[in-house]
Design a binder for these strands. Structure first.
Length: 421
RNA sequence: GGAGAGGUGGCCGAGUGGCUUAAGGCGCACGCUUGGAAAGCGUGUAGAACGCAAGUUCACGCAGGUUCGAAUCCUGUCCUCUCCGCCA
């Protein structure tokens, strides 16, 4: 959520920034609601002040045993007027709040201009794109041949988009998850969480999925709970309504979870095999930091996620998202992509974003700054990482001519073997 | 699913219709004291809106209602805790 004061005092600047994300965005309705609310509030406050002082008179008159009839007459008129205005104020202020919740975050000034993913910038590429001197297979073929992935059986029980990992496939998936968790815990100061998978609507409002993107999540109607699309949601809401101490910042939280996404409207678009699924596994990294440090922390976050790809001996590149491709809540974002030689595609496996105070305003997550004042802190998150596309790129990259998969050193302790055959 | 208790400032906690502009404590800040620290003493501090400020108003989970006036009474709702039931 954007700061209404900032919108009010710098409306041109905010508009200019927002249209970099989406040229159709406008905040005019917000400005007019805010204006109405402001003048109404002023009027109401004056009436309330009058009511307060007159009511006090009642107490004094009564204690003296004098008649209160005259004052009551005035007060009754005032009271009715105030009630009307209060009703109007409530409705205006809730309209304003709802409108604000629909406005995306403004992009950071350094986020490059652009309309779509075509305009994203490749920051760096460690994509040697290993040479194969044999006919390589894609992950679907490999998965079938090695009997480690079974999409047909999965579809029988759940429909399309739900992978079933089998034997060494299940082992590899589990090894990847454990390796990634351990890596972050050992090398950086993360606290591990195992979170609920179902959250209340307000939790999804904090992180920005609601109210705008309810179609993207699975909803349990009977209990009005949403299946988490990422552990970012519960991890961020750990501190909803909290006031953190500046000496406790930054806070680094890590959580593995299954993630559930309806992927409505994306049928037929890169949905082969593991490329786009309704349920997948992800190790998520969330940071709560002081505003002045958030961009430094973003850099570090990208590095923390990237290191994993190097250790897994995958080819990858870092992409900086242009304004038009930034998510609703992000001010700046770097994506990590791995090269899947079988698919002959770059696959997005991580998104590292700085949300600045956008989420913390929505979730009322504050800290006491050095001057003792309460302020909204900055939140960041990044996947560290999402497994299904890693899995695909992994078996495609490490396949051998005889159809076996070599396991890189970092994963061997978790697999208990050096190849899948 | 059934029964009960409760939700007040950063935290704890008093408060059952009108000097509550929310007592008291903890914490925090500053000062005194001290060789230094702790303790002690003193002073201050408290969320939100509008405003340069003075100030005004709002805020006692949330939403309604009663009343001239609500933290306090009524209704609904959400959440937390305890007990019972069910259960991996």
């Amino acid at each position: 959520m954007l700061d209404i004061k900032k919108i009010r005092n710098n409306s041109n600047e905010v508009t200019q920034s927002l249209v970099r994300k989406d040229k159709n965005l406008s905040i005019n309705h917000i400005l007019s609601l805010d204006n109405d609310l402001k003048s109404l509030t002023t009027e109401l406050n004056n009436l309330q002040a009058e009511q307060n002082s007159k009511s006090k008179e009642v107490g004094i008159l009564k204690s003296k045993g004098e008649s209160t009839e005259l004052v009551f007459k005035d007060l009754k008129v005032l009271s009715d007027k105030i009630k009307d205005l209060e009703k109007e104020q409530r409705s205006l202020s809730s309209n304003l709040k709802n409108a604000l919740l629909e406005i995306p975050n403004t992009p950071h000034e350094t986020s490059p201009d652009g309309l779509s993913e075509k305009d994203n910038i490749v920051v760096s590429e460690k994509g040697v794109k290993k040479d194969f001197n044999f006919e390589i297979k894609d992950h679907i073929e490999l998965g079938k041949q090695l009997d480690i992935l079974d999409f047909e059986v999965a579809a029988k029980m759940s429909g399309s988009g739900f992978p079933l990992y089998k034997g060494d496939g299940a082992l590899l998936e589990r090894a990847l998850i454990n390796f990634m968790i351990d890596y972050h815990l050992k090398n950086f100061n993360y606290t591990e969480f195992f979170t609920p998978y179902l959250v209340k609507p307000e939790s999804a409002v904090t992180t920005g999925q609601l109210p705008k993107f309810s179609e993207d999540m699975y909803h349990i109607e009977k209990d009005d709970l949403f299946l988490i699309p990422t552990a970012e949601v519960p991890l961020t809401n750990i501190h909803k309504d909290d006031i953190l101490k500046v000496k406790d910042l930054p806070k680094y939280y890590l959580g593995y979870s299954s993630c559930f996404r309806r992927e409505a409207g994306s049928y037929g678009k890169d949905t082969r095999g593991l490329l786009r699924v309704h349920q997948f596994n992800k190790v998520e990294l969330v940071k709560f930091v002081e505003p002045e440090n958030s961009y430094k922390e973003l850099k570090l976050l990208v590095k923390q996620a990237t290191n994993i790809l190097g250790l897994l001996e995958l080819d990858y590149r870092i992409i900086e998202l242009c304004t038009g491709d930034l998510s609703f809540a992000a001010a700046k974002c770097f994506d990590l992509e791995v090269w899947a030689p079988g698919e002959k595609k770059w696959l997005e496996v991580s998104s590292c974003s700085n949300f600045e105070d956008f989420q913390s305003r929505r979730g009322n997550i504050r800290f006491k700054n050095n001057e003792g004042k309460l302020d909204f802190l900055h939140t960041l998150n990044g996947s560290g990482l999402a497994t299904p596309r890693i899995f695909a790129a992994f078996i495609e990259t490490h396949q051998n001519e005889d159809g076996t998969i070599s396991i890189p050193d970092c994963l061997q302790p978790y697999m208990g073997k050096s190849e899948i055959k």
